[in-house]
Amino acid sequence: MHDLYAFVSGPLVWVAFIIFFGGSIYRLVSMAILAKKKDGVVFEYFNFKYALRSIFHWIIPFASTNWRLHPWMTIVTFAFHIGLIFTPVFLFAHIILIKESWDISWWAMPDGLADILTLVVIASCVFFFVRRQVLPEVKYLTSTSDYVILVLVALPFITGFWTYHQWPESTFMGILHILSGEVMLAVIPFTKLSHMLFFPITRGYMGSEFGGVRQAKDW
């Protein structure tokens, strides 16, 4: 267990981060090169003002027509993404570890809030799962990989919550927590989770086309 812990909390962290950052940069750069070569329009028409205008209308809850059309989905998806990003980054326990490794630290959220956000993320995953099962238009599009990704995302939160609250086998859960977090991080660039990288670009490009050429709103 000690070797395993030392491995997952040492070298594997580096591996996960290198894959995450390296993979993300690779995906973005190779996409940009491809765009330069094959889709001249993307660079020609990309316009930061209109890209941001569009992005803002889509990253603010209820700021687009479609968000207003689906209030539950909107509330859940925003809560989910906020929890997904903010919890690990501003978690006291993570910050302590980072501080002890790299001598950098930042504001940490209270543990109670982290608990709530974690539960929100887990509950959102359940919501998404049910949504994929129940709504015909979503079920029709869903493939097995969509469920796998949901599990990959939920796992670090479930195991983290578990080990924090010291439920039975929390040592094992702790290892699983570290491992699942690393797996999730590493697969981001190469799965549908890459929507994290491409959202600003696809939305921004559509915003640019609508704002700059079509002179119309796209939200």
Partner: peptide, 23 residues
Amino acid sequence: SETGARFKAYVETCVHCGLCSEG
């Protein structure tokens, strides 16, 4: 020969959420 980054990004970024339906 004719598709590139847009095609790739559109195909790979879709998270199968179904929110386009109402459109």
